[in-house]
Design a protein around this nucleic acid. Structure first.
Lengths: 193, 193
DNA sequence: GTTGTTTTGGAGCGATTGCTTCATAACGAG
DNA sequence: CTCGTTATGAAGCAATCGCTCCAAAACAAC
């Protein structure tokens, strides 16, 4: 019926996510996006609508891939605290990896840069955060059932404490290179549970 | 000897800080800066050198004013936990204040946007974070001496835990409007000390 | 007043911004 | 094959980017 597309939409969104992740929304130009995706501007605009729409798609993709990986780590075999530690360690090592360009957490970057201005960005970021919170809650609950974590306090509250510490550490990791110090905070937090 | 300046350098830097704070580095144009400071481009460039230098000056100013206010709150009269709570509450209410534009923490925004790329930005942000950490450590130590906080653990480690939770909450506050939930995490964290 | 020095406002530099236009290409349907 | 439809690449739109240049202006020193 018509000419088919020469590109894989998924790969394009992934490439765009990577570019937005590294340089932020304002720091990424449409030409940067054309270069990283391999698409010409007409294909890019014809398919996605514009820079903002592609940014939102990139945030969705982040949820589907990176956030999903965090959830997966929380569901590996092991005790509750081991699983919490595995997720936090994985993110911290990713944050400190110079070969990856110290790009941090895309959702957190988007929260800092654009969540205040754009309700759609806010919603997309919140989706990532809420998903992590829910899964942390489940892990904490499992730990409580197993007698590994004290049952006195509300699982949701404990999960939010862990989540806050986790995101706070990722903020600190942007300017703090001392892996041991960050790790000590992780272990100290887990010991409190 | 020569024509004197028609503007107050401090006021200009404060105005620039406010603009960068609200819109980020990439989101702020030199014309935005001219508008908010009242300076013409020639005066702005003659005095400060360029956009990047002014951004660094704005981060310095943030340290001198907002970070200093946080430190001051930690040194108000009251118990250690009361002082920790006062600082966190103040920031959270500032983060949630719609009339201020939900601009968050300038240092954290800079960390997310530019710390990975610019070593000078990284240094300026870290200065803010380290100052808070040091003061949190002092407050925790005082709490331990007063018997208010358990003396078993290292004050520095506890301070870092509080700091991480604090920054994590400020991340969450960008997309989470539920003040009560955020507050519950504060109180739960303080109860653990 | 004149001179010397610095600041100021405005025009505008080349480059880049997000995006559009359009002729052409590449297919499926008939 | 022809036709209808969509995708593509290249050129380029007006607007804005960070920044510079320069003549006029405003002072202090003399």
């Amino acid at each position: 019926m018509a000419r088919p597309r020469q590109f894989d939409e998924d790969r394009v969104i992934t490439a765009a996510m990577d570019t937005f992740w590294r340089h932020g929304y304002e720091g990424t130009s449409t030409r940067d996006l054309c270069d990283s995706t391999g698409l010409g501007p007409s294909s890019l605009y014809n398919t996605f609508g514009g820079k903002r729409e592609l940014y939102l798609r990139a945030l969705e993709r982040y949820y589907e891939t990176v956030t999903a990986d965090q959830i997966a780590l929380l569901n590996e075999p092991g005790s509750a605290k081991e699983r919490l530690r595995a997720m936090m360690l994985h993110s911290l090592d990713s944050d400190l990896d110079d070969t990856e360009g110290r790009r941090g957490c895309f959702a957190m970057n988007a929260a800092a840069e654009a969540a205040a201005l754009d309700p759609d960005v806010k919603r997309a970021v919140r989706r990532c955060f809420d998903r992590v919170e829910d899964e942390l809650c489940a892990v904490v609950g499992a730990g409580q059932s197993a007698g590994e974590i004290a049952s006195g306090r509300d699982a949701r509250t404990l999960a939010r404490q862990v989540q806050s510490t986790y995101y706070g550490l990722r903020v600190l990791s942007r300017v703090q290179d001392d892996r041991k110090a960050l790790l000590a905070t992780v272990d100290s937090t887990l010991a409190d549970l």
